[in-house]
Design a protein around this nucleic acid. Structure first.
Length: 579
DNA sequence: GGGGAGACTTAGTAAGCATCTT
DNA sequence: AAGATGCTTACTAAGTCTCCCC
């Protein structure tokens, strides 16, 4: 079955007629997302397999056979024993509470203290199993995965066969929130067919539930993009199965996102003038709105919706900043009007920044903080809905996050212009690209945990560099003596020898440069994640155009997945593309 | 306008896998 | 062949924003 409209797409490896060329098709305008949708439904988590009888659980030093339900939940904990989570009080408390709910009344009366539970045999058993799975022939694993992918990993949406992003239902386990999450350790329950809502078109072959089972509902809503949904039990939120980023439905939206950001580029000056005016407004709400917008624009802060207290980790964005999250310095390190930000943002990633701001902003902040407690809202007359309503009036489709997209993309474009030189060689250009990418990642505060092996791998690289330096010195010495030799002998053979040595020196110099560049790049990247901005904030057409201008194969910048996601941009953007 | 449901994007981590070293 | 290393992919949590109801 091949319903895709494909076109021969040229890439530097040759011709590959692989993509759906959805970007040359007409688009829906009326909120309709598709006319035909057919899929096979989700893949459920494998059923629980009770432990073999030799793998024992001990309570207070004594062997205890657990009921299957209680045992399953115990295995979730056992599997995480090596993780720091299991040492945290909240995690243990939440787990124990939910575990007890799964016990028989007899078990419940016996098992009263988590500290007295010994899961080590279970834990060892799972480690051994993981080991065994590793050594299982590669073909077995691959084949199984591939079979599932072929069977469940695709759907037909309109005239395209599309890849599904997540066709497997999340297996049961213990909830792992990020940061200080009040619900960490709670039992994430197993999802059954009866929990599942299927979305597909009426005239499609509907997915079939497992034998003897039923779906919760089958609906035919073509105003939404999801294929399957269920309600999760930790926060009560809805989870979805949706399409891969390479799909038409995702790609179109992504493209549209960058087009909105480009429209902002056209009117951003006007908007900036406007909010600067608003700093002087008589009305408090307008001043607050204007200062918040300034932060969102200048610092690429997120909007900051309010969150239900006690349901999630305590994190904030711009509109939900509290007095305790900023400090004002009339003077700091020779700069005037410095604001120090220190708060936990999305995923409990710390945002720390000291920035000089305009005097008016500074004065306003002082005013906003007057007579407030540390845990009071900084912008008490503002929330994201007020802010976005205002933005909508300034430009059609404008919301807070458009500023992040706009500032990220424009920064990349500027940095690429500034940093790259057509004359340089490919590794130098790629270093420059990464640096431009890095500037954006820093702006957006995209962090990562430094890789566990970072120090060591850095040392190894340094060793290599040192060795290469020695090698270069040797080669230079040899070249020198060859030259001297040629001067004396004046024959063809020794002239040739000089040429060979020269080439060798050149080659080694290049290799050395490459290694040094690699070291710089890696060092600068230690705690910074480039992937997030590359995937979500940077208009891919900027990168494609840059590659064309600089003679860099696109494969050096985008890996296979990224090329699939950005196929539209790779096909469309010419070297003169301007964001 | 306030609150909640719903839909969709953005995010970091860890497992999986490929490749390079020893 | 095994082990180290580094990149890719899968996973799923945590955001944003819209819409609807009151």
């Amino acid at each position: 079955m091949d319903l895709s409209i494909t076109k021969i797409v040229y890439c530097s490896h040759g011709f590959r007629p692989t993509y759906n060329i959805w970007w040359e098709e007409e688009r829906y305008t009326d909120g309709v997302k598709w006319k035909f949708l057919e899929h096979k439904g989700p893949v459920f988590a494998p059923p629980y397999e009770p432990l073999p009888s030799n793998v024992k659980f001990y309570y207070d030093g004594k062997h205890m056979k657990l009921s299957p339900q209680a045992e399953e939940v115990a295995t979730f904990f056992a599997k995480m024993l090596d993780h720091e989570y299991t040492t945290k009080d909240i995690f243990r408390k939440n787990f124990f509470k939910d575990w007890k709910k799964e016990m028989t009344s007899e078990e419940r009366s016996k098992i009263t203290d988590l500290k007295k539970c010994n899961f080590t045999e279970m834990s060892d058993y799972f480690k051994a199993q993981a080991e065994a799975r590793k050594s299982k022939t590669k073909e077995d694993k691959l084949e199984e995965n591939e079979r599932m992918l072929q069977e469940y990993g695709f759907c037909v949406m309109d005239n395209h066969k599309e890849r599904i992003a997540n066709f497997r239902i999340e297996p049961p386990g213990l909830f792992r929130g990020r940061g200080d999450h009040p619900k960490m350790g709670m039992l994430k329950r197993r999802i059954r067919p009866e929990d599942i809502i299927i979305n597909c078109s009426k005239d499609s072959k509907h997915p079939v539930p497992p034998p003897g089972r039923k779906w919760k509902e089958v609906r035919h809503d073509n105003k939404v993009t999801w294929l399957v949904s269920w309600t999760e039990n930790i926060q009560g939120s809805i989870k979805y199965i949706m399409l891969n980023p390479s799909s038409r439905i995702k790609g179109e939206k992504d493209w549209q996102k960058y087009e909105t950001a480009r429209r902002l580029k056209k009117c951003v000056d006007r908007i900036r003038n406007q909010y600067r005016e608003d700093w002087k407004s008589k009305e408090m709400r307008i001043r607050q709105r204007a200062v918040a917008l300034y932060f969102i624009d200048k610092l690429a802060l997120r909007a900051g919706n309010e969150k239900e207290e006690g349901e999630t980790a305590d994190t904030v964005g711009c509109c939900s900043l509290r007095v305790e999250h900023i400090k004002l310095y009339p003077e700091n390190d020779g700069q005037e009007f410095v604001v120090e930000f220190d708060f936990l943002g999305k995923d409990s990633i710390r945002y720390y920044n000291k920035v000089p701001v305009e005097k008016r902003v500074f004065k306003n902040l002082q005013l906003f903080m007057e007579n407030k407690e540390p845990d009071d809202d900084l912008f008490d007359r503002l929330n994201t809905s007020i802010l976005n309503k205002h933005l909508q009036e300034l430009m059609d489709g404008l919301t807070a996050k458009v500023f992040r997209t706009y500032n990220a993309s424009i920064t990349l474009q500027q940095q690429l212009k500034e940093l790259t030189n057509v004359e340089e060689n490919i590794p130098a250009k790629i270093l420059s690209y990464n640096r431009a990418n890095r500037a954006v990642a820093i702006l957006c505060n995209h962090q990562r945990a430094p890789p566990k092996t970072f120090e060591k791998s850095m040392q190894n690289l340094q060793t290599k560099i040192d060795a290469k330096r020695d090698q270069l010195a040797d080669a230079k010495r040899e070249l020198k003596s060859a030259k001297a030799d040629a001067k004396v002998r004046r024959d063809e053979k020794s002239k040739k020898a000089v040429e060979t040595k020269k080439k060798a020196v050149q080659r080694i110099e290049e290799q050395l440069m490459k290694l040094e560049v690699q070291a710089t790049d890696r060092e600068e990247n230690k705690q910074i994640a480039l992937g997030t901005s590359k995937l979500n904030y940077l208009d891919p057409r900027i990168s494609v155009a840059w590659c064309k201008k600089m003679g860099i194969p696109i494969e050096k910048i985008y890996n296979k997945t990224q090329r699939e996601k950005f196929a539209w941009a790779i096909d469309m953007a010419e070297e003169d593309y301007e964001f």
